Computed example of a mutant assay.
Amino acid sequence: MPYTKIKETCLYINDLDKAEKFYHEELEMPLISKVDGRHVFFRCGESVLLCFLPEVTKIETNLPPHFAYGKQHLAFEVKAEDYLEIREKLSKKEIEITHNQDWGGGLSSFYFEDPFGNVLEIVPQGIWE
Rank of each mutant, 00 (worst) to 15 (best):
E129S: 13
T9H: 01
Y69D: 07
C10E: 04
A19D: 00
H24P: 06
P124F: 09
H73W: 05
T9Q: 06
K34T: 09
I122W: 05
D82K: 08
V123W: 06
I13A: 03
R87W: 06
R87P: 05
V78Y: 05
L50Y: 03
E121N: 10
E88M: 04
E129F: 07
K34D: 11
L50K: 12
L50N: 10
E88F: 08
G70V: 03
N100F: 14
Y23V: 06
H99D: 13
S47Y: 00
T9A: 06
G117A: 10
G37A: 00
F52S: 01
F42M: 03
E85A: 15
L63I: 07
G104E: 14
L84N: 14
E129I: 08
M29V: 08
K21W: 11
P65R: 12
L53A: 04
P115Q: 06
V78H: 13
K34V: 08
E25H: 11
Q72W: 09
P30V: 09
P30G: 07
E8M: 10
T98F: 05
M29L: 15
E94S: 10
N100W: 08
R87G: 04
E88H: 13
I13P: 02
K5P: 03
E113K: 15
N118M: 04
K93L: 11
T98P: 04
E26N: 12
K5N: 13
H24Q: 15
F22W: 11
D102S: 10
N62F: 14
D17P: 04
T61A: 07
K93P: 07
Y69M: 10
L107V: 14
C10H: 11
G105H: 12
V48Y: 00
D82E: 14
V56T: 13
F110A: 01
F110E: 03
E8A: 14
G104A: 07
D82F: 04
E26S: 11
Q101E: 15
Q125V: 12
I86P: 00
P30Q: 14
V78F: 05
Y83Q: 05
M29Q: 12
E113S: 11
C51D: 02
T9R: 04
I32L: 15
S108R: 14
E129K: 13
A80T: 11
E20D: 05
L53Q: 00
E81G: 01
K18T: 05
E81P: 06
E46W: 04
M1K: 10
L74Q: 03
L90R: 01
S33K: 12
Y83C: 02
L49G: 00
H73P: 00
S91M: 14
K5G: 08
S109D: 07
I122G: 02
F116C: 00
